[in-house]
Design a protein around this nucleic acid. Structure first.
Lengths: 230, 230
DNA sequence: GTCTATAGCCTGATAGAC
DNA sequence: GTCTATCAGGCTATAGAC
């Protein structure tokens, strides 16, 4: 009982401090001071600093993955087992973007923690991300059903680019706001999700084999290989 | 004179060790052992560990930026002051991708160092990246000349997505190789550059206002706003 | 089981001799 | 410029109180 209170206090204090000041500037001593517990309690309950960080990240990460898979399942049921490609990509990038940029969660501790995790990518978080690859296969499977003709490599690249755009937007939102001098509205999450989905769909459908040996003007600018030639 | 040799030895040893084992696992004591110099020499020559890392990164980073701007200048001269959009994006993402994935530099110390810098994003490197925003304005200016009709916001988003795809490909190349079980060829740099450029061009030209209030089937999947409505 | 006090070792940084 | 010695602060481990 009392154990749960100490454990929870550590988790809450850690998430708050990491969200506020980042992983680099927060020590275990800062965390135990904020939580009003003893230094050794962290090791007792979590084993190490890294495992504490890992638990924080896994908790938030699992929630996002559940949202993703629910949205995917819903979209496929709605389409009788086959969802349109844009709905699949929407299910993939929507939860992540809304979780970090959403107006409801605007500046919530959880959102700011996940943004920090995205920007600083400390070792325990990297480890988790690296083994968190299985649930992406479910998206590849859904994409394969949506676009039966496409090469698998094209599907993987499409998925990869969709994740690239959403993660990079979260990670570099300050920079983009500054570079564009406010002309890119980073508060309108729905518009951002649509933009990412729209570009991802174009990436997946745009180079749709016009003629094996006649690359489109735009796709083969410098006489290099086009996707169709790979 | 002797100072220069010590300085260079530290730089070389640090870049090698960071490239091999990452920033998290390499201490100053490891570096001075590899360089056969005294521990205090690092602080004497660089001020701090962070400034040593910063110097390593800035050196490689400036070289890439020079390549980028040279390629951009060349493309604009070739077109009489106005380069086609794909050539501009090529100049933007080509040097970065070739510098990290190129077959000539395959596994070179410099390439592996820059990949580490991209993956681990340690504080001194983040600081440099954050203030390294000015030279991107030259690319925005060139893009504005190439696509006079486009909204500035669209140009910024296009630039942002191009960088997103190239950086994410460098950063997650192992993961993509594993996820795709080798079906995505991460050794064919030219093909990757073309793929990134091709998608970026589509992002910039694809949503080209078909009709103000009739969003295309693919761009407005869920009745949300399309780019044209922003 | 839960928690505290304390000691250990490693890190980056620095002062002062040479 | 270079080196030795030492420092403060970080995370971890453990012995023992409750």
């Amino acid at each position: 009982m009392s154990s749960d209170r100490t454990r929870s206090a550590i988790l809450a204090a850690a998430e708050k401090l990491y969200a506020d000041r980042g992983f680099g500037d927060v020590t275990l001593r800062d965390i135990v001071a904020e939580a009003n517990v003893n230094l050794a309690a962290v090791n007792y309950h979590f084993g190490s600093k890294d495992e504490l960080i890992a638990e924080l990240f896994v908790t938030r990460s699992l929630a996002t993955n559940r949202e993703r898979l629910n949205a995917l399942k819903l979209a496929e049921e709605k389409g009788g087992g086959r969802a349109p490609i844009d709905a699949i990509l929407h299910a993939l990038v929507g939860p992540t973007l809304r979780g970090c940029l959403g107006p409801d969660r605007e500046g919530s501790t959880a959102a700011r923690f996940m943004i920090r995790a995205s920007i600083e990518s400390v070792p325990p978080i990297r480890r988790i991300k690296n083994r968190e690859v299985d649930h992406l296969r479910k998206f590849i499977a859904a994409m394969r059903r949506a676009m039966p003709g496409r090469d698998d490599a094209d599907l993987y690249w499409g998925l990869h680019f969709a994740l690239a755009m959403s993660h990079h937007t979260i990670r570099e939102k300050e920079r983009l706001a500054r570079l564009s001098e406010g002309q890119c509205d980073l508060n309108d999450v729905d518009a951002i999700v649509d933009r990412v989905v729209s570009v991802s769909v174009m990436a997946l459908t745009g180079g749709e084999a016009p003629a094996r040996k006649a690359p489109s003007k735009v796709a083969a600018p410098h006489g290099r290989l086009t996707r169709q030639d790979l």
